[in-house]
């Protein structure tokens, strides 16, 4: 029986046999770490990347997704660090890539030592409320949130990362005292809002879209420079007189100290994923934006973003 299974697995794996040969190729299945829980935006995206790779035979060995959501990504970062010098571990990352090492200096992680593979997209953020709340614009939102004070629940993912930074921005900009409650994964957060256990969220479109299309939740405003095609009725915060935009990187990084050959190989694989029709479609459908960047450009981008996040974390007293 075991033999049958092994043969079968082997067949499945050999489906991915590469047609193009590279100077370096993975010698075993590649561990594809996801810095977030199952069902969230990062998770769905990682699984899409994995499948695109398999479908088009972009890599000679399969990518095996592993979720490591613990401690706002700390678990994943520590895991990557422990894999220093490994050529078979890559990770899908988001903005906790900057914030978690800053908040937990005890982890001893310097993400600038991680190997840049490619930035696949920048994800956008919107402010969401339940459709039955009667709130249709930011003024009504502020009024309702003010009335409830700290009984107003903002659900988000993790502590001291994207969702909480945005909540903090809203609290400061509009004089609110919303209560931030962390949940595991954006899918769960979306459900909390749809089930009216939370009053608002700052989810990515990909996480909230299902409930938006069903008419359960409504977008109030966007944290982007221009209005999003999918949500033409949600004004940007710039339009509303606040000079504030915020994105989330959707990048792939390799373990620190990865060999140059392996880095080049993975960058090429993910560039192909980026150019694939499936990925382009996904970006369009889920309101993602941004070019593919890799190598030193990505490193420079990280440095810039890390600076921005350092300031934001200082403001809320997290560091």
């Amino acid at each position: 029986m075991k033999k049958l299974l092994t043969t079968f697995t082997a067949c499945a794996l050999s489906l991915g046999a590469a047609t193009v040969s590279f100077a370096w190729e993975p010698k075993k299945p590649v561990e594809f770490v996801i810095m977030a829980g199952q069902g969230g935006g990062a998770d769905k995206m990682a699984r899409l990347m994995q499948t695109v790779i398999e479908k088009h035979d972009f890599a000679s060995k399969p990518f095996v997704p592993v979720n490591k959501p613990g401690g706002s990504g700390a678990e994943a970062l520590v895991h990557m660090k422990s894999k220093t010098g490994d050529d078979h571990t890559v990770m899908v990352t988001l903005n906790s890539f900057y914030t978690t090492p800053m908040r937990q200096s005890g982890l001893g992680i310097d993400t600038q030592t991680f190997t840049p593979v490619g930035r696949m997209a920048e994800d956008t953020f919107l402010l969401w409320v339940h459709s039955e709340s009667g709130i249709t614009n930011i003024d009504e939102f502020v009024e309702a949130a003010k009335a409830k004070g700290s009984d107003w629940i903002m659900a988000g993912t993790g502590k001291g990362q994207e969702d909480q930074l945005l909540t903090n921005f809203l609290n400061q900009a509009y004089g609110l005292t919303m209560k931030y409650v962390p949940f595991k994964g954006g899918g769960r957060v979306a459900k909390e809002l749809a089930g009216k256990h939370a009053n608002s969220t700052v989810n990515n479109p990909s996480e909230q879209l299902g409930f938006y299309e069903a008419g359960d939740t409504r977008a109030i405003a966007a944290f982007t420079p221009e209005r999003l095609e999918l949500f033409p009725d949600a004004p940007t915060f710039n339009e509303l007189g606040k000079d504030f935009v915020y994105f989330m990187q959707r990048s792939v990084v390799g373990a620190p100290g990865m060999s140059d050959e392996a880095q080049a190989y993975y960058s090429e694989v993910f560039r192909k994923v980026y150019d694939s029709e499936e990925w382009q479609q996904y970006m369009k459908k889920k309101s993602l934006r941004g070019e593919f960047i890799s190598g030193d450009d990505l490193k420079a981008y990280w440095q810039r973003e890390a600076g921005v996040h350092h300031t934001m974390l200082k403001e809320i007293g997290e560091i």
Binding site: K44, N67, K191
Partner: peptide, 30 residues
Amino acid sequence: PMLTLGIPGSPTTAVLLGGMVIWGLKPGPM
């Protein structure tokens, strides 16, 4: 919950969910 809410009820359904997204389906209320 995987089919109607788009959130997985177990680790295995999380993988299935990923598959559905890739096949071009939209798990969720619709």
